[in-house]
Amino acid sequence: MKLHYQQIGQGPDVIVIHGLFGSLENLNVISKHLSSDYTVTSVDLRNHGLSEHSSQMSYSLMAQDIINLMDELGIEHAHFIGHSMGGKVAMHCALNFAERVTKLVILDIAPVTYQERRHDNIFTALDASAQQVINDRKQADLLLADYIDEPGVRQFLLKSLKKDELGMQWKFNHTVLQQEYANILAAPTGTPYSGPTLVLKGSLSPYIDSSQRPAFLALFTNCQAKVIQGAGHWLHAEKPSAVNIAITGFLLS
């Protein structure tokens, strides 16, 4: 599995990993901020962005993809930053390849199996879009709006549209993402990680709550948490300054 990636900056290595339906561009606000002091490698996970597609999605496979890329680039160890699904990939790397993870930053996701299927309306919208030829983003937005009320969610998805000879196509492999959705909801697994870990939660996000505290402490024994006030699940987009300050302070500590 060959992952598409971008590298910017100079200094100690940082790996940045996006969430479900996203691409490496989603966390540019973090990558660009860190690039003045770090070599930042942002990746497209399998079945996302410009990376290769596969019929399989699991945290074991996605974590191994990241480690293989590090080997390819000659990166012995790095700080890991992951948002949502990418946070689980980063956690799985720490739990299985601890020697490769210097410090771990988790953005608004817990190391648990989620029971609520939050993305079914998105999959329904994407299935509907696959039945039509999409000529531009305005047409795609109108189609998605029949299933997705939140403009912000639609705009996030529309960033993954690309134009080819057949019209506009999704970069992500939504068919496999839907088929493998149970694996995406699953918890990362492995041996508890004792390296420094920072969890950032959006105060308005439902993805992390107090009931998950034992799971964090059992798997990440050197863990601290910070709440980003006024932010939801996309905390890095909603409160970029607060998120960057928290991450920079943690990496320098």
Results as ranks from 00 to 15, higher is better:
residue 175 T to W: 05
residue 135 N to H: 07
residue 165 E to I: 00
residue 187 A to L: 07
residue 227 V to P: 04
residue 202 G to S: 11
residue 198 L to T: 05
residue 200 L to R: 02
residue 197 T to E: 12
residue 180 E to R: 15
residue 190 G to L: 09
residue 157 L to P: 04
residue 208 I to T: 10
residue 215 A to K: 14
residue 209 D to W: 06
residue 184 I to F: 09
residue 157 L to W: 09
residue 207 Y to E: 13
residue 159 K to N: 09
residue 189 T to F: 14
residue 204 L to K: 15
residue 146 D to S: 10
residue 134 I to K: 01
residue 156 F to R: 01
residue 218 A to F: 08
residue 187 A to C: 10
residue 168 M to F: 11
residue 129 S to F: 02
residue 165 E to F: 01
residue 203 S to N: 03
residue 209 D to Y: 03
residue 136 D to C: 08
residue 212 Q to L: 08
residue 159 K to H: 07
residue 215 A to W: 09
residue 175 T to N: 09
residue 162 K to V: 15
residue 129 S to A: 13
residue 196 P to K: 04
residue 183 N to Y: 14
residue 133 V to M: 05
residue 161 L to I: 10
residue 173 N to C: 12
residue 177 L to D: 04
residue 193 Y to L: 08
residue 222 N to F: 03
residue 231 A to K: 05
residue 197 T to Q: 11
residue 182 A to K: 09
residue 191 T to L: 14
residue 154 R to L: 09
residue 228 I to K: 05
residue 157 L to T: 07
residue 207 Y to Q: 08
residue 196 P to T: 00
residue 225 A to C: 04
residue 128 A to F: 13
residue 150 E to S: 13
residue 171 K to E: 15
residue 162 K to H: 15
residue 191 T to S: 14
residue 128 A to T: 02
residue 173 N to S: 10
residue 133 V to Q: 09
residue 210 S to W: 01
residue 134 I to W: 03
residue 171 K to H: 15
residue 147 Y to V: 05
residue 132 Q to I: 03
residue 226 K to V: 03
residue 211 S to P: 00
residue 152 G to A: 10
residue 175 T to D: 12
residue 160 S to K: 11
residue 176 V to P: 03
residue 213 R to S: 09
residue 146 D to M: 06
residue 144 L to F: 15
residue 230 G to P: 00
residue 227 V to T: 15
residue 217 L to V: 06
residue 222 N to S: 09
residue 208 I to H: 08
residue 230 G to L: 02
residue 232 G to W: 13
residue 163 K to Y: 05
residue 136 D to G: 06
residue 174 H to R: 04
residue 229 Q to A: 06
residue 155 Q to N: 15
residue 127 D to E: 13
